[in-house]
Design a protein around this nucleic acid. Structure first.
Lengths: 379, 379
DNA sequence: GTCAAGTCTGAATCGGGCG
DNA sequence: CCGCCCGATTCAGACTTGA
């Protein structure tokens, strides 16, 4: 993996036509300031953004455990801001730079704690982003509150947003539902902290980065809001969890990071990963992904004859199929959906599952005939 | 209980010296606009504030369930704001009015959803409040996402703050820890919605208030951040959950509410409560039951790789694991349970015990990997 | 009275392609 | 851009109904 240094830019200015193949910045870490680096990327070029910005923790003095050991707090210089105004200006700048490189239907996830997430969320709204969900990452093993003065801070908050209210972001609903044992994925995610072998350590056994995120978190974000081959941007790349999971899941990434030590650790980490590929990356698809079969096809295929009689599952309503693929039920005529809605007095109706045909003694939904057509098309 | 109408104020102007005994406004509902009513209270007079302001939901058209029934949305006039600016101005005004009546060491809790909570949190910080925690109320029974377009919105967020960084708020650490089976109370609270007998209904069986909060939530807030005899203010009193729990726990309350229908319901509700008769009021504890582990967690945790091969115990059926946690076995795809049922021609199947993975020469059920996750979560 | 099956509902920013 | 219309989409828990 190459590292592009944006301070001494090795990224060529972007003209309207990219050379064939992947652009030079793909699957690289750009070194330098977040906004300056993002400004070197072409606009509308990324599908998903995961951002883990500085939390502006505003820590006071040292904190000691009951056994008097010192807590290794996040007091790095990059987490120091003079005021809320300074933090807001910083946030607004990187959000705007990020917004420019997002495709119109791209998603952005920003993670934070109560120190910064309210400011981030309000600014997202002020800048015209549209919030889809907030998600809480519940830590199974959070650090306890040693002083007993507050609740154990056992979660962080992620905001999922799009560029605008009208955006139609990728959301792999069916894949997530399957992933979650056939229940809808909820806004609360129970995941352990990044510890043990996953946590990057330096030669002295010290952790390389104070707030390394667990791969499980990124795994779920990428599964939810991207597809294989998509481009995932992380403007605060750190030790590269986003890049690592992107590579495993067959996504492309681009990162921005200022600190050379983090870049070095991330580069080694990602180089050691084998790129995911092939059928194992296929996402579980739902009915929406299936090709649309007009009702008339059933007549063309000979699966139904004009004059065939359809009923609802209880046999209460009776309709006749006409040669043009419309139904007639008493005074009502129209599509299977329209007539189904009319006879029920409902606002809408899925005619495929509402209408049944007699096969032997039992009634089966005409959806089974549609499935027969689909299987013929696949063959 | 008396109701004070602040429009035709029955509250005498407050001088520096209160007459002996409780002030007239104690344990009453003040009718009228929130800010105007609060301005009639003496400064620095309350110990705890619980505020459930309008969420500014910005709903679009109607939403229907899959069975075509209409969702009874919260579309009340009091939740309509013209813009974020209007909502911010409203929020700033009631926060400032509330701040004045808070004692220096008082606590304030504000609850909201992603529609409004980020604005509330940022404004709290801008006005000099000091955030102690954010707390997530995880709903065991939230409304599902009917269209499959987002994560199930399964939580709301509460912010606990003080008037300033130097405040020393009440925090009954030991009481909470005892309640929580001798573990520190965490920032995630697992509580069901307010339904059933607790939910106030009118003569037609319709809910009186669209967003009545569960008493369990207030019980925990009051236990954490107040003492018997304290004064608890709720500037958006609604149907009076704050007043009801205050009375049960031997706290004093003062509420502000604009809608007469809510005031009537709250008055009857609170009058029916016997002070301190809280035997039935056990604080809802965190769930002790074993947590459900979705199959996808095995991939996130790295215990299975995409592409891994699973078989039944005899090795007869072979399935491949995909990155999204679905299985593929011939033409069949879906969850471990669904595919297990399909390959056996069974109606249902426990995928955890049906599917095995080879470890060395023998096959072991993937249930053992789930147990490994559980032990990590316990650690 | 018991149990099983069916109904109802909860702070919701809930569609998309084609003409 | 607007309108039409196809047709996809739900979990937990309390309550009601009926055998």
């Amino acid at each position: 993996m190459r590292v592009l240094r944006t301070g001494v830019s090795t990224v060529a200015p972007h003209h309207s036509s990219e050379p064939a193949g992947n652009p030079a910045w793909l699957n690289t870490i750009m070194k330098g300031d977040c906004v300056a680096a993002l400004n070197k990327l072409p606009s509308k070029s990324v599908d998903l953004v995961f951002a883990d910005p500085p939390y502006n923790l505003q820590l006071g003095g040292d904190l000691h455990r009951p056994d008097d050991s010192k807590v290794d707090a996040c007091d790095d210089h990059w987490d120091q801001f003079e005021s809320f105004e300074a933090y807001d200006a910083f946030t607004r700048a990187w959000l705007l730079a990020t917004r420019r490189v997002m495709k119109d239907d791209a998603s952005i996830y920003v993670i934070g704690s109560y120190h910064n997430i309210f400011r981030v969320g309000a600014l997202l709204q002020d800048l015209g982003f549209w919030i889809m969900n907030d998600i809480v990452w519940l830590k199974s093993n959070p650090m306890p509150n040693f002083r007993g003065k507050r609740f154990t801070n056992a979660h962080e908050t992620m905001i999922w947003a799009t560029k605008s209210k009208t955006a139609k972001p990728t959301f792999n609903y069916d894949a997530l539902k399957t992933f979650n044992d056939d229940l809808q994925m909820r806004s609360d995610w129970h995941l352990p902290l990044c510890t043990g072998g996953e946590r990057l350590k330096d030669g002295d056994g010290q952790k390389v980065h104070p707030t390394q995120k667990p791969e499980s978190l990124l795994y779920r974000v990428l599964t939810a809001s991207s597809n294989p081959g998509d481009v995932v941007l992380d403007p605060f790349f750190g030790t590269g969890t986003t890049g690592a999971v992107s590579k495993k899941l067959g996504r492309n990434f681009v990162g921005v990071e200022r600190e050379q030590a983090y870049i070095d650790a991330a580069t080694a980490r990602i180089d050691a990963i084998e790129m995911g590929s092939g059928a194992s990356l296929d996402m579980q698809k739902g009915k929406r992904a299936e090709k649309r079969i007009p009702f008339g096809n059933l007549l063309e295929a000979g699966l139904l004859e004009p004059g065939a009689e359809l009923t609802c599952s209880k046999g209460r309503h009776l309709a006749v199929v006409r040669a043009d693929g419309s139904l007639k039920c008493g005074e009502h005529t129209g599509s299977i959906h329209k007539v189904g809605a009319l006879v029920q007095g409902a606002a809408s109706c899925n005619g495929w599952t509402f209408w049944h045909i007699k096969s032997g003694r039992k009634r089966s939904p005409i959806d089974e005939l549609r499935e027969e057509i689909r299987s013929r098309l696949r063959a």
